[in-house]
């Protein structure tokens, strides 16, 4: 407790960021420490689960110390512990879980497992202190692409999800094919700014009429086919043009389906969350479309788009307030449904 307010320690280790955060009451972030492993995985062109797990274990305790220090509290002040319990890489998740469980046991404080997507959605509460459900959310990252109707703090309906690759995964794969490096999201975003988005018309995959699901696995193949054809013709490849054209083809689908979902659910508030929410074209196009339809658009600042523990702590607080506490048998759920 601090000034009679509850203190939540949030822990996130579902992929390649080791993070710990201290949240005061619902939405005030006292600290949000993120140890990124991007540099470690760059040499491999993507996240290697075994290496991610090893780094999480090395990082987790100093990261927690740093979060406590920045928040100017000690572990004894912590009132509840929230931790990502899935979905994610199982070996990565279990570092956060083993840590959170052990600490909750010693401190005799409530333990709350948090769904990673619920965490991403909760990032918006931190950014926009006045925002409350209901709203429509597009959660889009390297591991997830879902349209979620958020009816209350702990009540969600998933309206559509990717049937194969996540949007962020498509960015990573195409960036690799184009020789841009890893992680693909920001690199393609940058390259696209210098390219012509209409240079190549890659196929937009909308699936069945009215479907809110996604499919991005074909786009990588589309880019590969295009590159091969051009190479055979002996044509020069303009990487920036391809990055811009690819990006537009993904973003158009994301924006189109999100707006369709908002209209269908009659929500006038739209939220984008997750790593890809930092994409500048997604933000711009969604803003234009929302303005046209009279919806209000909310998105978190880049640091809250990435995997971070503040969003997990915030989600844990709302679960705790609804009496959704876990016991010490809490497990890692790599394919957890929302």
């Amino acid at each position: 407790m601090k000034d009679n307010k509850l203190i939540t320690l949030g822990i996130e280790t579902s992929c390649d960021e080791t993070s710990a955060a201290v949240i005061l009451e619902e939405r005030e972030v006292l600290s949000n420490v993120i140890a990124s492993q991007i540099k470690v995985h760059q040499a491999f062109g993507g996240v290697v689960p075994e290496i991610a797990s090893r780094h999480h274990l090395n990082n987790i305790n100093p990261v927690i110390d740093q979060a406590l220090k920045e928040a100017d509290i000690t572990l004894k002040d912590v009132d509840l512990i929230g931790v990502t319990s899935g979905p994610g890489l199982v070996g990565a998740l279990l570092i956060g879980l083993a840590t959170a469980k052990s600490m909750a046991y010693v401190l005799k404080k409530p333990l709350i497992g948090v769904h990673h997507i619920q965490g991403h959605i909760s990032a918006i509460y931190i950014e926009h202190k006045e925002l409350e459900p209901p709203f429509l959310a597009l959660v889009v990252s390297g591991g997830h692409t879902s349209i979620v109707d958020v009816t209350d703090y702990n009540s969600y309906t998933v309206l559509g999800s990717t049937r194969d690759d996540a949007a962020g995964e498509a960015f990573d794969k195409v960036a690799r094919v184009l020789g841009l490096g890893y992680p693909g999201g920001p690199l393609i975003d940058e390259a696209a700014k210098k390219g012509n988005p209409h240079a190549v018309e890659f196929k937009r995959v909308f699936l069945e009429k009215g479907s809110l699901d996604f499919s991005f696995s074909g786009i990588k193949t589309g880019v590969l086919n295009h590159l091969n054809t051009e190479k055979l013709k002996g044509n020069q490849i303009n990487v920036n043009d391809i990055a811009a054209s690819f990006q537009l083809s993904v973003i158009e689908v994301l924006v189109g389906k999100t707006i369709m979902a908002a209209e269908r659910t009659k929500r006038d508030k739209v939220v984008i969350a997750g790593g890809v929410a930092a994409n500048s074209l997604l933000r711009d196009m969604m803003k234009d479309e929302c303005e046209r339809k009279g919806f209000s658009l909310y998105f978190p600042s880049p640091i809250l788009c990435t995997d971070n523990a503040a969003m997990i702590g915030c989600a844990a607080y709302y679960k705790y307030k609804s009496g959704l506490e876990d016991n010490f048998f809490l497990d890692a759920y790599p394919n957890m449904a929302l």
Binding site: L94, I95, T99, K101, S102, M103, Y105, V106
Partner: peptide, 14 residues
């Protein structure tokens, strides 16, 4: 890793 992570966190909290 489960053993070491748990041992470290128990020690940290204690």
């Amino acid at each position: 890793r489960i053993g070491v992570a748990s041992a470290r966190a128990l020690a940290q909290a204690l």
